[in-house]
Design a binder for these strands. Structure first.
Lengths: 118, 118
DNA sequence: CCGTTATACCTTGTACTGCAATGTATATCG
DNA sequence: CGATATACATTGCAGTACAAGGTATAACGG
């Protein structure tokens, strides 16, 4: 079970990443993410759809309805150029944070002392 | 500049990690994190102290006042056993998310198709 | 001596937000 | 026919991040 903040922080880049690979729809995105995480990440409807809506509102993805072979309407999403740029920026940010966290996991904390003890 | 969510998500493991390496105080923790991130992460007072207070309230760290050599009072924080367990759990969660994100960065998204197209 | 900077910690209002829960709809399966 | 799976939508509100403003004092340069 991931913390709320970590889930929130990773939702956007993951969705954008999945859509960069190919257009998809909500229900399937949830399945892919479950698969990619070995079942550890189980997003719900209430989680993913508000995020998809917001991404679309921000112009990072676009959507259109398609009638599937079994007559169900599906809302397909596709990443935009702006969305790809945003994904790039997300990757850079995650890289920064991950670099610091790697130091933390490895116990490589700089030995900075208070001025009065230099 | 990190997103709000990413900053929020990484604050606790970073602080716990710094304190696992050795007891420290707020002002110095901020300096260490700035150093570890090459200047990219600049936390403010208003950010770190409420988090330190919450961590203490949850029993993950403890604190005590020490008078420094230049007569300034400093509030030193130290991680507890419980805090070390929490840090371990954080590392596992970050590992899970990072594994999924690595797939995203590498474009390794599973090709799962809707049932009607299998 | 004074203004500035650095060293330290504290508090809080409030704008923002995540998402469980609930809802609608329908195909498939046993 | 009931249960499950396939799909998308909406929202109330509990929770929360942290900038801004505050207090205090040492050190430094002009």
């Amino acid at each position: 079970m991931l913390s709320k903040n970590l889930t929130a922080a990773s939702t956007r880049p993951i969705i954008l990443g999945v859509l960069k690979q190919g257009r998809s729809y909500g229900y399937l995105i949830i399945k892919k993410i479950k698969d990619m995480s070995g079942g550890k990440m189980e997003w719900s409807d209430g989680m993913i759809y508000p995020v998809l809506h917001k991404l679309e509102k921000e112009g990072l993805i676009v959507s259109d309805w398609v009638m599937s072979k079994d007559k169900r309407p599906r809302k397909y999403y596709e990443i935009t150029e702006k969305g790809k740029l945003e994904l790039q920026a997300e990757q850079e940010q995650w890289s920064q944070v991950t670099a610091v966290l790697d130091m933390v996991w490895k116990g490589q904390i700089p030995k900075i002392l208070p001025d009065a003890e230099v």
